[in-house]
Amino acid sequence: MRYYIKKVISLIMVLFLIMLLTFIAFQVIPGDSALSRLGVDAEPEAVEALRESLGLNKSLPERFFSFLSGAVRGDFGNSYQYGKPVGELLSARLSVTVWLAVLSIFMIIAVSVPLGLVCSRKEGGVADRIITMVTQTLMAVPAFFLGIVITLIFGLVLEWFAPGAYIAPGEDFGGFLRYMIFPAVAIAVPKIAMTVKFLKTSVLRELKLDYVRTARSKGNSERAVLWRHVLKNALIPVITFMGMVIADVLAGSIVVEKVFNLPGIGRLLITAISNRDYPVVEAGVVYIGSVVLIVNFIVDLLYQKVDPRVRIK
């Protein structure tokens, strides 16, 4: 129990640090937010008035405190560009990104675990060689190209979906999910290729260990050896890897969002950066930082669950 409390406390402290660094970074960036919003030709009085209303006149610690207390409540102020609260903007985009992540992570796990096991079951066999070749190729394909190919094949040739015709979840949730499958595939495929390779290496390493021989000597079939004994052991390093993949997917993919015309986090951030929409960028950095931290935290907990050797008494 103490271990978990400690973990949570350190998690909170790192989150605090992320916010502090984000805040400082945006203070250091040259240029006045008010000035950049109104343009260089603006009246000095107007700039001053805006600075006043944005709270830019206050001292640094004061401003950090208001930033922090806002961030804790999910309030990052208003977007310069859209004039709407950042929280609102972000949460609307978040649902798209999260659904995309959930779909692609589901695909990654559902496809790569069986494929990885098939590969390692008969190393050098026909199935292994085909899968290895295909995954090797897919790993090298850039996401945007994969997106274009998927659009071409499933959108234009097979007409399974209308390219670019994004359906908001509020309008038609079923339609939304059906549309989301295709960008999810574009995200999942390269990651599947990596996970298969990773899992295969891990399983092959485990298969050489003594306990596998013991399991066989007890009369386990090859299938039982793999599923009952090897898989859990082989998944231990894969969990770390999956954690990185999940954090990456949750941070949003600009390219895939662009190709499929999705209103996701990635695109929001890229426009915000080019328009110097600092409140949005700040919120985005804090969001991505938190996602990475929380996913890592969950990975740590999973480790405890799967591997009794790292379990804390």
Binding site: L209, D210, Y211, R213, T214, A215, R216, S217, K218, G219, N220, S221, E222, H229, K232, N233, I236, V306, D307, P308, R309
Partner: peptide, 28 residues
């Protein structure tokens, strides 16, 4: 065949090995 051997292993012929740490499944 493999299948016939699996029935013999453990039931008729059992084995123990040198290194009991690595010969047992660490997560079971």
């Amino acid at each position: 065949t493999q299948k016939e051997l699996e029935a013999v292993r453990g039931d008729d012929i059992a084995m123990i090995f040198q290194e009991p740490m690595t010969s047992l499944n660490p997560v079971m």
